[in-house]
Amino acid sequence: MAAIYRRGHLTVGVDQTTPLLSYLDPATGRIDGFNVAIARQVAKAIFGTENAIKFVAITSAERKSVILGRKVDLIADPTTIVCDRLAWADFSTAYLVAHQRVLVPSASDVRGIGDLGGQKVCAAAGTTSIYEIAVQRSHPIPVGVPNWSDCLALLQQGQVAAISTTDTVLAGLSTQDPQTKVVGPRFTYEPQGLGMPKNAKDLVRFVNAVLEQLRTDGEWKRLYARYIGTRIQPRIPDPPLPIYCETSCRD
């Protein structure tokens, strides 16, 4: 914490290809989104201004290496808190809960992950999503790519039949292409947190306090309404309840 304060800015690893959550706006060259806004709130709590922040764009597969290499103070890439990852990172309490579903072209008659047996389904490499695709009983063929937008490019070119990941990421991808739709049941439960290097307990505690503040003062709901709105569910949801114990991950 002290090192961050002395440096004068927070360094945050983010995805730059998922609209709504964290994306590079080609028109302004700025990185923005719900996850980014949460990270900016942490910077604001430390430095008094949310602009005391620098971003390092990472792919999902690079999350582990930037944390272990201490290239960033925290990652705000959509990251599900799972036990595996506790080996190399500590997580804040969940700031968003998402569920894995399926994105297909509007013309497709696929109605969920169960209809995708033997077909190619895209997800970013190094994510829980690609693991989930691989273990489905319908046996889809997982296709791993560096960035989420790479999946959309493959879907648009007809090289994969579907994209499957959390509804939050899918909603962001579908804003880029009206010729797509999100279908099927939610088949996972994914609490997402900010990841930090191990042995930075003071930072974890500080971030948790910031998140608690956002939950209670209504800022969380305002940010959710601003960036995600009603694209996933008809009502703005309540913030996820914090669970502080070490077992707040899922297998």
Binding site: T17, L24, P26, S149, D150, L152, A153, L173
Partner: peptide, 20 residues
């Protein structure tokens, strides 16, 4: 062409087409 069209519309997927 696809990369440029997407970027002109402000869509991040343009970067993926450029990469490809």
């Amino acid at each position: 062409g696809e990369a440029k069209a997407d970027s002109a519309e402000g869509l991040p997927v343009g970067a993926s087409y450029l990469q490809e």
